[in-house]
Amino acid sequence: MEIEAKHHPMDKYLRADRIPHIWCPGCGLGTALNCFLYALEELNIDPDNLAVVSGIGCTGRIAGYLNVDSYHTTHGRAIPFATGLKLAKPDMKVVVFSGDGDLFAIGGNHFIHAARRNMDMTVLCVNNYNYGMTGGQLAPTTPMEARTTTSPYGNLEHPFNLCHVAAASGAVYVARWTTLHVRRLKESIKEALNKKGFSFVEILSPCPTAYGRRNRSPTGLDMMKYYQEHSVIKHGIDPSEADIEIGGDIIVGKFVDIEKPTFNEMVKELIEKARK
């Protein structure tokens, strides 16, 4: 059956001529994108004043669907590209939208250093526990024992707890939600977008095609049900206590919300001083 839609309520933020998107049925990326678009709408963000930067991977394709200045960069390098962009255009809102492998494996060094600097940007990380686009390989977020195409006997590596990494690296805003928590996710993205400094939202998202099939959740619905059964909201908890394990609680909520000077502010002050 063909679904016919004249337009989407969020069309003004989308490159409608680029739709349909490339994502699989049951994938959470559409939901994640939708939450982001509603956050933009509710904050009344001018699309001409927004730049979205992404790396490589399924999530990396989000930039290409947004009708804003959008940059689809190299694998892992969205954050440093966005760093240059934001420093050159301090008045623009700069968002990095990318996946867990892109941001925390190949790009992990950039993530921790941008957080350390308190670069003024929002990083939205869609975590689907694996490399979806390349066929479901082991990621730095894959839970212990989970099966992927490169851990056929089960994962032997301890995964990153992304929120813990973000908080330890100095992020001023850290939250985690799943694509089941659409309203809370949207509100959290709004808070992150309004936050001065390095804000981070982890979005747990189903990847039934590449990950779920191999881990007893063959459909998007299975994975959403899993989120429903296992998610526990614990605002303000120390993110080091929010590890993700198969069968364990998925702790979600807002973990960090603090203030400190941003790199951009300090660069601006330095220039004012140096020019005198």
């Binding site: 590209f81 760093t83 255009k89 623009m92 660069v267």
Partner: peptide, 22 residues
């Protein structure tokens, strides 16, 4: 603006980003 990046991968990415920033 001067920024010391975490490595040369980042340095190169940053100058591309800033160039797109005009």
């Amino acid at each position: 603006i001067f920024v010391q990046m975490e490595d040369e991968l980042a340095s190169m990415a940053a100058i591309l980003g800033a160039s797109w920033g005009g």
